[in-house]
Design a protein around this nucleic acid. Structure first.
Length: 592
RNA sequence: GGACUCGUAGCCUAGCCUGGACAGGGCACCAGCCUUCUAAGCUGGGGAUCCGGGGUUCGAAUCCCCGCGAGUCCGCCA
């Protein structure tokens, strides 16, 4: 269990020592393959079950546990044999010492691990720029952004990328709509925001797509646009008035406008994108052309009516999906082909690539992966798939008008948070209450998404989405604010230091230290396995143990040395909680 | 029809990859706690055929097989 985080992780000395000792002892006895596990609470911190060795050593597991247990013991751990189990406990003084030392060293950065010196690119959101975000896909930016933040804490150099689809029919449909429809053709926008204003053009244009000539016109525009891009001539006018912007310029302008509206929603959510990469880029810079010619040379490559595909009949996929078409019969590229070009570009710029995708992209992602292998790429992207958020009445659908927009959800969350603040804090100014309402409302929203595993489907219910109690962001934020309040009243708090090792004797204090001590390891795990909900859990546990400590151990009214040590502990809680919340993109308020 | 994912108390969820000691939480419900640092809190309580059936194993929520239910995909769309 080498976490590679050395002095940042208080648990490492314990894990390393126990693991090392157990391994060599088992080797002496010629029994391998038994591994340490986490025992139930109250039974220590690591456990070694002895059932497996029973057959080989021809003794009862209980006898083996006793025998082996006697030979174990170390600087960091104590051993206790319980039936067929050997339990290892991290010695309190060592746990305290190592935790306090990490806190002392890291300060408010507690939870951050050492720099790895490697680069990871996280691609998330990448929603089509044709209208506002709806809740169905809201998991994407939340999972992606949290992962970005966690990876940064874990020591990676991270870049968050948004792959913008500025090609293809959906975009051209929007462009056609903007050019050909007028305000009278459209219902009033649901809100005064660019993406909401423009989505109406897209929706109406999509409806008219049923009409033959509209479809033809859009296809024509698309071809013209693609041709200009492929020729690398964005200034070229083809069948297009000379005194107007070119098609390419038009597309760019409209896409950027809509994207601007979408981006403001992301900003409000606290999501930060470092770089927008446009699909058209891979066409203009020639990467796409190169990918196509390399794919055509592949042994899997087949041709049918001028269209090219890779043949995956030998792979465990069936029916039509055995064939991955990468060009149309007119030679133009398809979406996944452009994605492939993007991935070549991306993978050459990082040590690790993570994509956040909706589960509907699984097959496409499989093609991408296999095609990359076909091109001789060894470093493949890791993919986090998430299931959709649906409504109790069914799947969200823009066309059927059965959607909850992210903007509305954020409004509602903030509104409800405002109500709650007003109930409790009559002393605050309107401005302060609004700030807190925003922090709490948005925090609750993000937390409710991130706390569950991405592959679970979510049915959207307002009462769940706006839950502010228990396992929720406000609970954690509240604990943080409580800690801040104590520190504020104390005026000054001593920095946690190993000198306080002896001063934490009460159960609630020890539990709290232990809870805090587990944060760095949680960061390591969450970053390694790309599972942000691990941090959500840890944050909750820390807040919970702090609330228990709060009940049992008075801080401000405690006598001299104890007060000092407890204040240092409260400061540690503040650091740990604000780090954890920060990793989830949730603001840690000083008061609420 | 095939492939992938999910199925844990009234509801939501952790644990599943790497099988082990009584399946952790939360919401809702019931009973308590504001003369002490913010009650968005704390304490206690009831509530679980871990979807069903087989198998592997000393041991299965966890691994394998067969079902059932839900979601997603199976386009020269994105």
């Amino acid at each position: 269990m080498n976490t590679g985080t050395n002095m940042h992780d208080p648990w490492e000395p314990f894990f390393n020592e126990v693991e090392g000792d157990v391994k060599s002892l088992l080797r002496e006895h010629g029994v391998e393959g038994t591994s340490l596990e986490t025992p139930p609470p109250g039974m220590g911190d690591l456990a070694l079950p002895c059932f497996q060795m029973a057959k080989k050593l021809r003794k009862s597991p209980q006898a083996i546990a006793v025998e082996l247990g006697e030979k174990l013991g170390g600087k960091n751990y104590a051993v206790e044999v319980k039936g067929p189990y050997i339990n290892f406990s991290y010695k309190r003084e060592e746990l305290l010492r190592n935790t306090l030392s990490a806190l002392e060293m890291m300060g408010e950065d507690y939870g951050r691990l050492g720099r790895i010196g490697k680069r990871v690119i996280v691609e998330h959101t990448s929603a089509n720029p044709n209208g506002p975000f709806h809740v169905g896909r809201a998991r994407n930016p939340i999972i992606g952004d949290s992962l970005v933040r966690i990876l940064r804490y874990a020591g990676w150099d991270v870049e968050a990328q948004y792959w913008v689809n500025d090609m293809g029919k959906q975009v051209m449909t929007l462009v056609w709509g903007v050019k050909n429809l007028s305000e009278e053709d459209l219902p009033p926008p649901e809100r005064d925001k660019v993406d909401h204003i423009y989505v109406r053009y897209y929706q109406e244009a999509s409806r008219r797509l049923e009409e033959e000539d509209v479809e033809e016109r859009i296809n024509h525009m698309l071809k013209e646009y693609e041709q200009a891009l492929e020729d690398g001539d964005l200034k070229r006018h083809i069948n297009h008035p000379k005194d107007k912007p070119t098609r390419a310029e038009e597309v760019k302008e409209i896409v950027e406008k809509v994207l601007g509206g979408m981006d403001s929603s992301l900003k409000r959510l606290g999501v930060v994108v470092d770089r927008y990469v446009y699909e058209s880029q891979v066409v203009v810079d020639g990467t796409l052309r190169e990918v196509i010619s390399r794919l055509r040379e592949s042994e899997r490559s087949r041709e049918e009516g001028g269209a090219y595909y890779l043949d995956f009949s030998d792979k465990p996929i069936h029916g039509k999906s055995k064939r991955f078409f990468f060009t149309r019969s007119d030679g133009s590229a398809l979406y996944t082909t452009r994605d492939l070009a993007y991935h070549l570009w991306k993978l050459s710029r990082c040590d690790r690539a993570i994509n956040i995708l909706g589960e509907d992209h699984k097959l496409q992602s499989y093609y991408l992966r296999e095609a990359l292998k076909e091109l001789g790429v060894e470093k493949l992207p890791e993919v986090v798939f998430y299931s959709f958020v649906s409504l109790p009445e069914g799947k969200m659908s823009t066309r059927k008008g059965r959607v909850v927009y992210l903007d509305d959800l954020m409004d509602e969350a903030v509104r409800k948070a405002k109500e709650e603040v007003e109930k409790r804090r009559k002393d605050l100014s309107e401005k302060e209450m609004d700030e807190i309402a925003h922090i709490v409302g948005i925090g609750a929203l993000r937390y409710n998404i991130i706390k569950v595993q991405p592959e679970k489907k979510i049915t959207f219910r307002w009462e769940d989405a706006l839950n502010f109690d228990g396992f929720s962001a406000p609970f954690i934020q509240y604990s943080h604010a409580r800690a801040c309040s104590i520190l504020r009243k104390a005026g000054e708090a001593p920095t946690p230091t190993v000198k306080f090792v002896e001063r934490y004797q009460e159960e609630a204090e020890l539990e709290l230290v232990k809870s805090i001590s587990l944060l760095p390891h949680a960061v390591y795990e969450a970053a390694k396995s790309a599972r942000p909900h691990i941090i959500a859990q840890r944050a909750y546990e820390i807040a919970r143990s702090f609330n228990e400590f709060y009940r049992d151990s008075p801080v401000l009214h405690a006598p001299g040395e104890i007060r000092e040590a407890r204040l240092a502990l409260v400061l540690s809680v503040r650091w740990a909680l604000s780090s954890a919340l920060n990793m989830l993109g949730i603001v840690a308020p000083e008061r609420m």
